[in-house]
Nucleic acid binder design. Structure first.
Length: 634
RNA sequence: GCUGGCUUAGCUCAAUCUGGCAGAGCAGCUGACUUGUAAUCAGCAGGUUGCGGGUUCAAUUCCCAUAGCCAGCUCCA
């Protein structure tokens, strides 16, 4: 019998029982390796699946995110086969694809190290070259369980025990049989480019009470060019590491005396203050007022807020006059005390109160990571107190502000995620429903695409998260809006409505940069330390050619400093070439060269430190040039 | 917190495996050079080898403990 298969709107006729792979071979033979699976509605179909009816499908290609995930997942099976060939006593746990590759967890008496990678990669290449098929087989749960138990594969057996289905699918590649949902590539030769990247310990099921397994990471791409580009990106990321650049530029430091507590050096302080100045200005422009609340507050407050019950493992405590106090991990309870100090009218709402709040959170020692994960940081926090009816509109305004601010910092690619009620939470079901609905509606009203993260909300409310993409394509979570009906209830907050009666306000928590410290880390990596003019710690360095030019250089410096520009002079007795090199290493924004000709004609020759082009300007023109630079970036 | 690795001059790294006087480059200081677009030359100084124990005639090196850092797990702004 002939079947009609509609692929991407084009019709093909093939015999019943043949597969999509046969179809490709017959009609589009030069597509080999580019097409990796097909999608029918939400369902992914393997190319080798026999077809028994007319269908309408779309190709899944290796350059799509679904396609690359299949490719990587299959590569993880190939790695597991290679590892089992080389180290036969090894047990396998799980081996999924990840955002940038794949891994497989192994339980082995052999301690693997990176020197083993060459061996494993060679074995994998052998497997790929021998073009072994991936063969899917459905078996009963009991049969699969018996098989893996016989082989002592305790991890696989444990997973099967928890699967809620009559049958499970097994995939055979060579002599390796794995429990797996699929889909997979038709055969191993589809893998064109792969590499093992690192090895690390990982707990079975991510639980530190369980045995630690050995996780081998790798990655695979549709072709070697993409793999190479990825590896180059990793190198580039290393070059941009904010910990390295921070040290080189004298921005910040961490010392043994305070693990996780950043110290800001003078150049870093310029960045920090530049951001804060900008932040204050734009918040004023958007109708926010500002407060500051204490860092240490009485234990009682934290019981009322729910932090004691839900967050105490991350909090620092202290005693004052025999009473127990906690160091704030969040700013909201303090802000609420200010709100509750007095009566509020509905006419004041929405009330937008911002706070650059210094918070302390006791993060586990192993998670600290430069400025990205610290124990003390400043949230660019704000709390918006409003009526239920105002929530949606206020959320929309925050979203607009978030986008404006990111774009001012040079981030134009933003994506949004919505996180819903976690298992550990406070507040009633109705509150949660209403809160989640308000956030959803705001996003839908603005026609913004978003992804849902189930159970990932804060303990007091659901949240919208904002992620920005940096110069080398990495994504960072920064901003957040959290919709909170619970705190107002707990703290018995109220406003007087038009009806003269007390009503409960809704509280929106929001941060845009997230943490100033972390945001600076992201900026460093985004700009690779070459900050735009308004943020650059050293905006201009004057390089006098000889000692005779120092006096004129100083007068130029003073002139520019009066306008508020950050100017230094290289007074060393080096040659010009050496001074230029040093200025570039220090990532100075612009350099000015002053020699006889400039001194005699009262001019300055400037150039951006990383460019070749020179401009010779009058001092007034230089000031205008700098003012332009400032305006262009903000 | 867990697993593994690392910690040597201000910085980047040798010497550690196989125990035997701890060594470079850059930065610093001094002097000379007065310089026109990515490193001028010479000299000087710089160290209880993260901290604490142990083994040894002898420990930067081996062992134990501890702190910090790095990678990953988990968590997260």
């Amino acid at each position: 019998m002939q079947l009609t298969i509609n692929v991407n709107g084009k019709e093909y006729s093939i015999e019943s029982g043949k597969s999509l792979l046969d179809l490709i071979k017959q009609y589009i033979p030069n597509a080999k390796y580019g097409i990796i699976a097909a999608r029918e509605g939400d369902k992914l179909i393997e190319l080798t699946t026999p077809i028994g009816e007319n269908k309408s499908v779309e190709w899944v290609k290796t350059d799509s995110s679904e396609g690359i995930a299949i490719l990587r997942h299959s590569t993880s099976h190939i790695m597991a086969l290679a590892v089992k060939r080389l180290f036969p006593k090894t047990l396998v746990a799980i081996g999924p694809s990840t955002d940038d590759g794949f891994y497989y967890d192994f339980d082995s008496e052999t301690r693997f190290n990176e020197e083993d990678f060459t061996k494993i990669e060679a074995e994998m290449q052998k497997i790929i070259d021998s073009d072994l098929p991936f063969v899917r087989k459905e078996v009963s749960k009991a049969e699969a369980l018996a098989k893996f138990k016989d082989e002592g594969e305790i991890y696989k057996a444990e997973i099967i025990g928890e699967i809620d289905a009559e049958t499970v699918s097994l995939y055979t590649t060579g002599e390796f049989v794995d429990l797996c949902r699929g889909p997979h590539i038709p055969s191993t030769s589809y893998i064109r480019a792969f590499k093992l990247t690192k090895i690390a310990g990982a707990y079975w099921r991510g639980d530190e009470k369980n045995k630690m397994l050995q996780r081998i990471y790798g990655t695979a791409f549709a072709d070697s060019k993409s793999l190479k580009a990825y590896l180059t990106m990793l190198e580039e990321a290393k070059e941009r590491d904010h910990r390295k650049i921070g040290k080189e530029m004298g921005l910040f430091g961490f010392y043994q005396e305070g693990p996780g507590f950043p110290f800001w050096k003078p150049n870093g302080m310029v960045l920090y203050n530049g951001i804060v100045d900008y932040w204050r200005r734009i918040h004023r422009q958007n109708g926010y007022i500002e407060v500051k609340t204490p860092i240490i507050l009485n234990e009682d407050l934290w019981h009322r807020s729910g932090h004691w019950a839900n967050y105490s493992e991350n909090m620092y405590f202290t005693k004052i006059d025999g009473d127990s106090y906690a160091v704030k991990p969040m700013n909201c309870p303090g802000g609420i005390l200010i709100y509750n100090d007095g009566i509020h009218s509905y006419k004041e709402l929405p009330l937008k109160i911002a706070e650059l709040g210094l918070v302390h959170r006791h993060e586990k020692s192993g998670v600290l990571h430069g400025l990205f994960r610290v124990r003390q940081f400043t949230q660019d926090d704000a709390h918006i107190y409003c009526t239920k009816e105002q929530v949606k509109g206020e959320v929309e305004k925050v979203i607009a502000l978030v986008q404006k601010i990111y774009s001012d910092f040079g981030f134009d690619d933003v994506h949004i995620e919505l996180s819903t009620r976690p298992d550990k939470s406070i507040g009633s079901d109705e509150m949660w429903e209403l809160a989640e609905k308000s956030l959803k509606e705001a996003l839908e009203e603005l026609k913004i695409e978003y992804k849902v993260n189930p159970k990932d909300g804060a303990f007091y409310g659901p949240k919208i998260d904002f992620h920005i993409k940096d110069a080398i394509g990495r994504s960072w979570q920064c901003g957040t809006i959290q919709c909170d009906f619970a705190m107002p209830e707990r703290f018995d907050m109220s406003y007087i409505g038009a009806d003269g009666k007390k009503h409960r306000p809704v509280m929106l928590h929001r941060a845009i940069l997230g943490s100033i410290e972390r945001f600076i880390g992201i900026l460093i990596e985004h700009y690779k330390g070459k900050f735009p003019f308004w943020l650059a710690p050293e905006q201009l360095r004057i390089l006098p050619i000889a000692a005779a030019h120092l006096e004129y250089a100083n007068s130029v410096k003073n002139f520019l400093q009066n306008f508020g520009f950050r100017v230094t002079i290289d007074e060393s007795s080096e040659k010009l070439g050496a001074k230029i090199k040093q200025a570039r290493l220090d990532r100075v924004h612009t350099i000015a060269i002053i020699g006889d000709s400039e001194m005699n004609s009262k001019l300055v020759t400037v150039r951006k430190a990383d460019m070749e082009e020179n401009r010779t300007l009058k001092l007034d023109e230089l000031v205008d040039f700098f003012i332009d630079l400032n305006n262009n970036t903000k």
